[in-house]
C-alpha cells in the first residue's frame, strides 16, 4: 500500500464542534506536567486577564487528532497507520484556547513528498471558534515508512 499522491491539496469537511471543558484542561495540564496556576486555578486565570482556564500550548492536538483520524480513514489515502511515525509538529496561535471555547477544525493536505522510500504527509488543521474566527493552526508531518523498511 502506497500513499496516494492525489491526496495533496485535498480539503476535508470540518469535524463536529469540540467544547473545551475546564476539567479537560486540568486533566491535560496534569498530563504534560504543567504547574502553571493559569491552567488550573480560575482566580489565577482571571487575574492574568483570561475569562477562564487557559489550555497548555500543545492542547490543540486533542482537536487536531479528530481531523487526522478523518485523513487516515479516507478510503483512497493509502496510509497504513502501523507504518506512521510523527515527524514534525507545529502550533501557530491567533489567541489562546480557554475553557468554554467551542472549536471546530478542518484539515487540508498541504503536501505529499517522497524521501528515501518514505512518504512525508503534511496536514494542516485550521482550528476556529464558534464565531468562525481563527484560534490556532496545527500542522503535523507524518512519516509513512516504506514497505521494505
Amino acid at each position: 500500500m502506497a500513499v496516494n499522491p492525489a491526496l495533496q491539496g485535498r480539503v476535508f469537511p470540518p469535524v463536529p464542534a469540540y467544547l473545551v471543558g475546564r476539567e479537560k484542561i486540568r486533566e491535560f495540564a496534569r498530563a504534560v506536567l504543567s504547574d502553571s496556576p493559569i491552567n488550573f486555578d480560575l482566580d489565577a486565570a482571571h487575574a492574568a486577564g483570561y475569562r477562564d482556564l487557559v489550555a497548555p500550548p500543545t492542547f490543540p492536538i486533542v482537536v487536531q487528532e479528530r481531523t487526522l483520524a478523518q485523513l487516515l480513514a479516507e478510503p483512497d489515502a493509502g496510509i497504513d497507520f502501523s507504518r506512521v511515525v510523527h515527524g514534525e509538529q507545529r502550533f501557530t496561535y491567533s489567541r489562546p484556547i480557554v475553557a468554554g471555547d467551542e472549536l471546530t477544525a478542518a484539515l487540508t493536505v498541504a503536501s505529499i513528498k517522497s524521501l528515501g522510500g518514505h512518504t512525508m504527509v503534511t496536514a494542516v488543521s485550521e482550528i476556529s471558534d464558534s464565531a468562525g474566527l481563527h484560534v490556532v493552526t496545527a500542522t503535523s508531518t507524518l512519516v509513512v515508512r516504506g514497505e521494505e523498511s
Binding site: V32, S34, I38, V54, G87, Q89, R90, Y93, P96
Partner: peptide, 28 residues
C-alpha cells in the same frame, strides 16, 4: 507529543503565562 508538551513547560514557567505562547514547533 508528551515530550513536546512537557518540554514547553519550562518556558511557560519562565514567562509565567501559557497564553503568551504564540507559536511552538519541533521535529521528533
Amino acid at each position: 507529543m508528551l515530550t513536546m508538551g512537557v518540554a514547553v513547560q519550562s518556558t511557560v514557567r519562565w514567562i509565567g503565562d501559557p497564553g503568551r505562547i504564540l507559536d511552538y514547533q519541533t521535529r521528533f
